[in-house]
Write a protein that binds this DNA or RNA. Structure first.
Length: 261
DNA sequence: ATGGTTGAACCTCAA
């Protein structure tokens, strides 16, 4: 008995619904963490996804952001919004407990702010968000559960995770301050599933729509599945589902998927 | 390449 858990920034769930349904049928992930729904809860395409056997928890927002959890097993204890700032109303975090026959686990879907440019206010919001995520994950890890915090972190952890590390050093998604903030989260003792499963592979999860980036291999690995010790120790594999970036009208992100025993 | 593309909603913003 194993569980497939994936994260995917869909860049509008309504624009990507055909790709999403085809992929759910083909790869049959048990749990999917979605980001950038770009819609409110009332227009989320519940019916088509439920027909494939998924339970759904959505934290939507008009136009921007929006996160969801799809699960073949029941979802309980749903939390929406990242704790730590009651003035932050952006829909960038949802968490739930999944009860599968094999195990009970806690999962979260997170959409870290892009940050725009390192000299902008949005970058300060990104750093503050990562600090709040640090505090929240610190608390979750004390529960000593099987925990998966997956999403679009908008940060590439290491040089191998970007196409041109020297050229990109200091630019958005690869600035020392945001990398430090992500490393601080990892140093709590939560593990980057892709890097644990593939210590030396260069596989990106996002490619800019512009300048033919996908075909020229200019991407970054900014989508991550972070697993607690209880989860990483039973992980079997982790990979990027690049084929979804090759379809007509793709998301600019490809899913990342792992399997736990 | 101070460009380039995409999506949502409005003709601009965020990514």
């Amino acid at each position: 008995m194993s569980l497939k858990i994936a994260t995917w920034n869909v860049n509008s769930v309504r624009s990507r619904i055909t790709h999403l349904l085809d992929w759910l049928r083909e790869d049959a992930p048990d749990i999917v963490l979605l980001q950038e729904l770009k819609c409110t809860n009332d227009v989320f395409p519940y019916m088509e996804i439920e027909e494939l056997g998924y339970n759904i928890a959505v934290h939507g927002q008009k136009t921007y952001n929006g996160v969801a959890i799809l699960s073949k097993y029941p979802l309980d204890e749903v939390i929406t919004g990242l704790p730590g700032d009651e003035n932050d109303l952006e829909a960038r975090y949802i968490e739930a407990v999944v009860s599968s026959p094999a195990a009970v686990l806690r999962v979260a879907s997170v959409y870290v702010p892009n940050g725009s440019s390192p000299d902008s206010d949005k970058f300060q919001y990104k750093l503050a968000f990562l600090e709040r995520l640090y505090s929240h994950i610190k608390g979750l890890l004390e529960l000593k559960e099987i925990l998966v915090v997956g999403g679009d972190y908008n940060v590439a952890p290491e040089a191998i995770d970007v196409y041109a590390p020297k050229e990109l050093d200091g630019s958005i998604c690869f600035h020392p301050l945001e990398r430090q903030a992500l490393h601080k989260i990892l140093h709590l003792g939560i593990y980057d599933a892709f890097r644990v499963a593939n210590p030396h592979s260069q596989n990106f999860s996002w490619w800019d729509y512009r300048a033919n980036s996908y075909d020229s291999g200019k991407g970054m690995r900014i989508d991550h599945l972070l697993l607690s010790a209880q989860a990483i120790d039973i992980m079997q594999n982790c990979s990027v589902v690049s084929k979804l970036r090759e379809l007509e009208k793709p998301s600019d992100h490809a899913p990342v998927i792992c399997e736990i025993k």
